[in-house]
């Protein structure tokens, strides 16, 4: 049940750490049982999940902006409808995820305020600009492709509401990557100018997409406990490798080349890639990507411009309640 109302306050005894309960909790996880909102859980599990799910939600919502940048310029009516539907899906996914995070005891408003205040992070990838129509194809093909790699294992995450949200998200997202690949294929089969546009987009997005999987395993701070709690089922590097191996043949089909001259297939059949520039990743996360400021400004503006609408709806609901109470009293 996705409901905050079922959660008890922090003063509740279920929040008091207790070695025996912690052992029982881990035993349930090990037995592949799902944890539900009302169940006892270690405070650190709650905190980790709240952080991860809300970051995931923020990413969906901020992720609407780079693609939204092209809805009004989509080059055909068919593409326009597909793109609008896709970006709308992302809004829906953000909404499902906020609801899943809310079951852990924070309200959507608190979570959103944390993001708008710069205290919560979102995926680094959305801090890069969409400069051409090929970027829309590339985002669908690669960014959604990478997201799916990350998200499919989350459908089996130990926390019930998160797993259920991810099942819905993955089901809806199945058209997103195909939509992107179709755009790329059309460009690659089009004029020389279109093909160059596709190659340029791949050149710009490839490295940031590889960074989406997070820091390499030896330095990832959250991996150990997340794995123990079955929030995470594969390591960053495992998923990254899986993604690269799946993507190489697709790029070959398109006739595009990766901006990585060192890329080669090893004996095991995996594609090895060159070193990732983690300094760039760090800078983007720290707020210094090409679009961080624009993204935050756009979200803050939507939030601030919408405040009077939300207030009006709340005020109306309150008035209606009072009128109903008055009528009942008569």
């Amino acid at each position: 049940m996705y409901t905050q109302a079922l959660n008890t306050s922090d003063g509740d005894e279920r929040h008091i750490e207790d070695a025996e309960r912690a052992t029982q909790f881990q035993a349930r996880i090990d037995a592949d049982e799902r944890i539900e909102p009302n169940d006892w859980m270690p405070a650190a599990y709650r905190k980790t999940l709240t952080r991860q799910i809300s970051q995931h939600a923020h990413s969906e919502i901020v992720g609407m902006l780079p693609e939204g940048n092209w809805i009004t310029r989509a080059p055909s009516l068919r593409r326009k409808a597909a793109l609008l539907a896709k970006v709308q899906d992302e809004c829906g996914h953000g909404l499902y995820l906020y609801a899943a995070a809310e079951t852990l005891g924070s309200s959507r408003e608190e979570l959103v305020d944390a993001m708008l205040g710069g205290k919560a992070k979102y995926s680094s990838i959305f801090n890069y600009p969409t400069l051409t129509w090929a970027d829309i194809g590339t985002i669908g093909w690669l960014v959604d492709g990478a997201a799916i790699m990350n998200q499919i294992p989350l459908c089996r995450c130990s926390y019930g509401p998160y797993a259920r949200a991810m099942i819905r998200v993955c089901k809806e997202e199945s058209f997103h990557q195909r939509q992107g690949f179709e755009i790329m294929l059309t460009l690659c089969r089009g004029t020389a100018e279109q093909k160059a546009m596709a190659q340029d987009a791949l050149n710009r997005w490839w490295w940031p997409v590889l960074m989406m999987f997070g820091p390499p395993d030896q330095v990832s701070q959250h991996s150990d406990t997340s794995t123990k709690w079955k929030i995470k089922r594969f390591s960053n590097d495992e998923l990254r490798q899986k993604f690269v191996d799946a993507t190489v043949p697709q790029a070959q089909f398109l006739g595009l080349t990766f901006p990585d001259p060192g890329m080669k297939q090893n004996e095991a059949g995996n594609w090895e890639y060159s070193a990732i520039d983690w300094e760039e990743f760090k800078q983007v996360l720290a707020g210094n990507g090409p679009c961080n400021r624009d993204r935050m400004a756009a979200r803050r503006k939507a939030h601030d411009d919408g405040a009077w609408v939300r207030e009006a709806a709340m005020a109306y609901a309150e008035k209606r309640k009072q009128r109903a109470a008055l009528q009942a009293a008569e």
Binding site: M64, I71, Q88, C91, Y98, K301, V309
Partner: peptide, 20 residues
Amino acid sequence: SEWCGHAPMLEEDMALANMG
């Protein structure tokens, strides 16, 4: 469609896109 990503709340973003 110009509203997409900028509506007063997520629920309304969904509604505006549906009408669009």
